[in-house]
Amino acid sequence: DHWEIRVGDITIHLKDVDEEIIRWVEEALRNGDDLEEIKRWVEEVLR
């Protein structure tokens, strides 16, 4: 699977990601969370 999350001008590409993570990231972006923080979290989860 390949996911693209778009929020404003930001697009995040994710592969082999659980839908729950996608929802979490979308929510975090909508809440204005720091992008670097989100990326770190996702990388942590995917490890």
Results as ranks from 00 to 15, higher is better:
residue 1 D to H: 13
residue 1 D to F: 14
residue 1 D to Q: 13
residue 1 D to Y: 10
residue 1 D to E: 11
residue 2 H to C: 11
residue 2 H to Q: 09
residue 2 H to F: 12
residue 3 W to S: 03
residue 4 E to Q: 12
residue 4 E to A: 10
residue 4 E to K: 09
residue 4 E to S: 08
residue 5 I to L: 13
residue 5 I to M: 07
residue 6 R to N: 04
residue 6 R to V: 06
residue 6 R to M: 06
residue 6 R to D: 02
residue 6 R to S: 03
residue 7 V to A: 04
residue 7 V to G: 04
residue 7 V to H: 09
residue 7 V to Y: 08
residue 7 V to P: 01
residue 7 V to K: 04
residue 7 V to N: 03
residue 8 G to W: 08
residue 9 D to C: 01
residue 9 D to M: 13
residue 9 D to I: 11
residue 9 D to E: 09
residue 10 I to V: 09
residue 10 I to E: 04
residue 10 I to S: 05
residue 10 I to Q: 08
residue 10 I to L: 08
residue 10 I to A: 07
residue 10 I to H: 08
residue 10 I to N: 04
residue 10 I to T: 08
residue 11 T to Q: 05
residue 11 T to D: 03
residue 11 T to W: 12
residue 11 T to H: 07
residue 11 T to F: 11
residue 12 I to K: 02
residue 12 I to W: 14
residue 12 I to E: 01
residue 12 I to C: 02
residue 13 H to P: 05
residue 13 H to Q: 09
residue 13 H to A: 08
residue 13 H to C: 09
residue 13 H to S: 10
residue 13 H to Y: 14
residue 14 L to M: 07
residue 14 L to S: 04
residue 15 K to W: 11
residue 15 K to A: 08
residue 15 K to F: 10
residue 15 K to E: 06
residue 15 K to Q: 07
residue 16 D to R: 13
residue 16 D to P: 11
residue 16 D to I: 11
residue 16 D to F: 14
residue 17 V to K: 08
residue 17 V to F: 08
residue 17 V to P: 06
residue 18 D to L: 14
residue 18 D to A: 13
residue 18 D to R: 11
residue 18 D to F: 15
residue 18 D to T: 13
residue 19 E to Q: 09
residue 19 E to F: 10
residue 20 E to R: 14
residue 20 E to P: 06
residue 20 E to S: 12
residue 20 E to V: 13
residue 20 E to H: 11
residue 20 E to D: 07
residue 20 E to G: 07
residue 20 E to Y: 15
residue 20 E to Q: 13
residue 21 I to E: 01
residue 21 I to G: 01
residue 21 I to W: 09
residue 21 I to V: 08
residue 21 I to K: 03
residue 21 I to P: 00
residue 22 I to F: 13
residue 22 I to G: 03
residue 23 R to N: 04
residue 23 R to H: 05
residue 24 W to A: 06
residue 24 W to G: 02
residue 24 W to N: 02
residue 24 W to C: 03
residue 24 W to M: 09
residue 24 W to E: 02
residue 25 V to D: 00
residue 25 V to M: 05
residue 25 V to W: 02
residue 25 V to F: 05
residue 26 E to Q: 15
residue 26 E to C: 15
residue 26 E to T: 15
residue 26 E to Y: 15
residue 26 E to W: 15
residue 27 E to R: 15
residue 27 E to N: 14
residue 27 E to D: 10
residue 27 E to I: 13
residue 28 A to R: 15
residue 28 A to V: 08
residue 28 A to S: 07
residue 28 A to N: 04
residue 28 A to L: 07
residue 28 A to I: 10
residue 29 L to Y: 06
residue 29 L to I: 09
residue 29 L to A: 02
residue 29 L to R: 01
residue 29 L to K: 01
residue 29 L to D: 00
residue 29 L to Q: 01
residue 29 L to F: 08
residue 30 R to Q: 05
residue 30 R to N: 05
residue 30 R to L: 07
residue 30 R to G: 05
residue 30 R to F: 08
residue 31 N to S: 08
residue 32 G to W: 10
residue 32 G to F: 11
residue 32 G to L: 09
residue 32 G to Q: 07
residue 33 D to Q: 13
residue 33 D to T: 14
residue 34 D to C: 14
residue 34 D to G: 07
residue 34 D to T: 14
residue 34 D to M: 14
residue 34 D to S: 10
residue 34 D to Q: 11
residue 34 D to Y: 14
residue 34 D to V: 12
residue 34 D to H: 12
residue 35 L to P: 10
residue 35 L to T: 05
residue 35 L to G: 04
residue 35 L to W: 08
residue 35 L to N: 04
residue 36 E to L: 08
residue 36 E to H: 07
residue 36 E to Q: 08
residue 36 E to C: 03
residue 37 E to C: 05
residue 37 E to N: 10
residue 37 E to W: 14
residue 37 E to F: 13
residue 37 E to K: 13
residue 37 E to L: 11
residue 37 E to Q: 12
residue 38 I to F: 13
residue 38 I to Q: 00
residue 38 I to M: 03
residue 38 I to P: 00
residue 38 I to W: 10
residue 38 I to C: 01
residue 39 K to Y: 13
residue 39 K to V: 11
residue 39 K to G: 03
residue 39 K to P: 01
residue 39 K to C: 05
residue 40 R to D: 02
residue 40 R to G: 03
residue 41 W to A: 04
residue 41 W to M: 08
residue 41 W to G: 01
residue 41 W to Y: 13
residue 41 W to F: 08
residue 41 W to K: 06
residue 41 W to Q: 03
residue 42 V to S: 00
residue 42 V to Q: 00
residue 42 V to C: 02
residue 42 V to G: 00
residue 42 V to Y: 06
residue 42 V to I: 12
residue 42 V to D: 00
residue 42 V to F: 06
residue 43 E to Y: 15
residue 43 E to I: 15
residue 43 E to W: 15
residue 43 E to R: 13
residue 43 E to S: 10
residue 44 E to Y: 13
residue 44 E to H: 12
residue 44 E to F: 13
residue 44 E to T: 06
residue 44 E to I: 11
residue 44 E to C: 14
residue 44 E to R: 15
residue 44 E to L: 13
residue 45 V to A: 14
residue 45 V to K: 12
residue 45 V to C: 04
residue 46 L to K: 02
residue 46 L to V: 04
residue 46 L to Y: 05
residue 46 L to H: 01
residue 46 L to S: 01
residue 46 L to R: 02
residue 46 L to A: 03
residue 47 R to M: 09
residue 47 R to H: 10
residue 47 R to Y: 01
residue 47 R to T: 11
